[in-house]
Each structure stands twice: as structure tokens, then as C-alpha cells.
């Protein structure tokens, strides 16, 4: 396959995915019973006339396809309209919330990757220690124990029983919880892959040449594990965005997750629509990037 086509096809596919999700999200949100005026009316005792006027002004009463077309033009220029609840431009709200989410996701991904790496490499280097058992334990922990339960347990123990620190608003506690969760998902496949690489012919040849264990490890074993790591990382980053949603709500962090939940409960559809498009684009971009890197480091054709 020529290089240009190899690049163009995934790009087209990614664009198609984002477009399809945008439409699907619009349909979903359009089907939500009740609108923002219902929510405002509950809070502010609006009369029926006031409600009708408000609907007219906000344009929430118009048919779905009209709303979609009116939304699409500015959206393509990066303008997602006004939040119905906060009265601020949606893009401003998202820009303010994005750093928190990125910090949380980035921190937990970095720490998680490092943890997984240290434990997996350690378990390979010291097969008779407790480290291989730790690989299994961290893996089971991450699969089975929900992060939001760990989060609540952390709040209970540190903030209320021990009275150490105000955990609410703290970024590091949720980041660490998510990091351990992420490490658990990464460590087992990484360990399995490294183990397999150890028995590979080129590694045995290197050992026969009398190279040091370190040199074998860094130069001959690790590069073989990079494709697996890349594939896992892209899946992991998408999962991390999801995990950070609940953590933000739990720890009162003003990120995209808290914004999403506010938008759902307040029927603030311009905000919700924009968040969905933003997250979907993020995930698709991450996947496309990982895919590209995967092709670069692993030239073997894939199934």
C-alpha cells in the first residue's frame, strides 16, 4: 500500500467517526425528555407565558433538524453557542474545565505507566520474588474494585477518620487512585509480552553472545514490547477519560466530568453536545495517533 493512501484512509475513517458521533449525540440529546426551561421553571416559578417566551428566545422549541443545521455552521468554526444554564459561551466553559481533566488524566496515566513498567520489569528480573504475584494482584484489583469506591474509601479514611487533609478539591488523591487502576490494566499484558520476548530467538542469541542482562533488557527485550504498550495506552487513555469523569464529580474538581454531569442534569444541550463532540474527537485522535505510531514502530502488516 502506498504511504499516502495508508495515511488518508485512517484520517477519513477518523473524520467519519467524529461526524457520525456528532449526529448520534444530537439525536440522543434531542430525545431527552424535558428541556432547560422545565428545569429553570422548577427553580424560578415561571409562568406558562414566560416559559413560552424563554423557549422562543433560546430556540429550544424548534424541530431537531433545524436546530442541528443552526448548530453545525458555527460549530465547524469552533463556536458551540451559549450555555443555556450558565449564560456563558460553551467554548469558554470547556476551555476553563479542560486543564483540570487533562492534568488528572495525564498525571494518572504517567504514574500508572511508570508503576506498571517498574512492576512488570521487576517481576521479569526477579521471578522468585513476590513481584510476579504482585502483577496478578494489581491486575485483579484494577479489574474488580471500582475506582469510585476506592475514592469514597479514601475520603472516609483520610479526611474524616484520620482528619489529615481536605481531600475534596485535591488533585493528587484521585490521580493516584486512577494511576493504580491504570497500572493494573497495563501490567499484566506488559508482563506477558516481556516474558514471551525473553524466550524469543534474538534474545537467546544475545544471551549466547554473553551480553549483560541490562543490555539485553534495554536493547533487545523492551523494543519488542513497545507495540503492545502503544495499543494498550490508546485503549487506556480512552478509559481514563471515563474514569476521570466520576473522580471529578466525587472530589469536586471543576473539570469536563463535572461539566458533563451539570449539563445532563440541567438539560443544557449546547454544552452537552459540545462536550460529547470534544471527548469523541479526543478519543478518535488518540486512537489514530497510537495507530500511526504503531505502524512506525511495528512495520509487520496486521491482521
Amino acid at each position: 500500500m502506498s504511504g499516502a493512501l495508508g495515511l488518508a484512509l485512517p484520517t477519513l475513517r477518523a473524520l467519519g467517526l467524529v461526524a457520525a458521533i456528532t449526529v448520534l449525540a444530537f439525536l440522543c440529546i434531542g430525545a431527552v425528555p424535558g428541556d432547560v426551561v422545565d428545569v429553570l421553571a422548577l427553580q424560578g416559578d415561571l409562568t406558562a407565558d414566560q416559559q413560552a417566551a424563554l423557549r422562543e428566545e433560546m430556540g429550544v422549541g424548534r424541530p431537531l433538524h433545524e436546530r442541528f443545521l443552526a448548530w453545525l455552521g458555527p460549530a465547524l468554526r469552533g463556536e458551540f453557542g451559549q450555555s443555556l444554564r450558565f449564560g456563558l459561551p460553551v467554548s469558554e466553559l470547556m476551555w476553563n474545565a479542560l486543564p483540570t481533566t487533562l492534568k488528572l488524566a495525564g498525571l494518572s496515566f504517567g504514574i500508572g505507566l511508570l508503576l506498571a513498567f517498574v512492576v512488570a520489569v521487576g517481576a521479569i528480573a526477579r521471578p522468585r520474588s513476590a513481584l510476579p504475584a504482585l502483577v496478578q494482584a494489581v491486575n485483579i484489583w484494577s479489574v474488580a474494585v471500582p475506582t469510585f469506591c476506592v475514592g469514597i474509601a479514601a475520603i472516609l479514611v483520610f479526611s474524616i477518620w484520620l482528619g489529615w487533609l481536605p481531600v475534596i478539591g485535591n488533585l493528587w488523591v484521585p490521580a493516584l487512585i486512577l494511576a493504580i487502576d491504570r497500572a493494573g490494566e497495563l501490567v499484566k499484558p506488559l508482563y506477558d509480552e516481556l516474558k514471551e520476548q525473553q524466550g524469543a530467538p534474538h534474545v537467546r542469541a544475545a544471551r549466547a553472545k554473553g551480553l549483560s542482562a541490562w543490555r539485553i533488557g534495554v536493547v533487545h527485550v523492551l523494543p519488542g514490547a513497545v507495540p503492545v504498550l502503544l495499543a494498550l495506552s490508546s485503549v487506556g487513555l480512552a478509559g481514563l477519560l471515563g474514569g476521570s469523569l466520576t473522580m471529578e464529580v466525587l472530589f469536586g474538581l471543576p473539570g469536563i466530568g463535572s461539566l458533563t454531569l451539570n449539563a445532563v442534569h440541567g438539560r443544557d444541550w449546547p454544552l452537552l453536545q459540545a462536550v460529547v463532540v470534544l471527548l469523541a474527537t479526543g478519543v478518535v485522535l488518540i486512537n489514530a495517533l497510537a495507530d500511526l505510531l504503531h505502524r512506525l514502530v511495528d512495520p509487520r502488516p496486521r491482521r
Binding site: 457520525a20 458521533i21 440522543c28 440529546i29 469523569l245 454531569l261 445532563v264 478519543v283 486512537n287
Partner: peptide
């Protein structure tokens, strides 16, 4: 299924529960 996979799982669930009563 690819489409569903391109969103974080919890967001799909949140959208659907919000859309259905």
C-alpha cells in the same frame, strides 16, 4: 460498534440514560 467504542463507556451510558427516561 466502532462508533460506540469511540466514546468513553461511561459517557455512552450517561447519554443513553439521559435520552431514555
Amino acid at each position: 460498534f466502532d462508533l460506540l467504542r469511540a466514546l468513553p463507556g461511561i459517557l455512552v451510558a450517561i447519554l443513553l440514560v439521559a435520552a431514555l427516561s
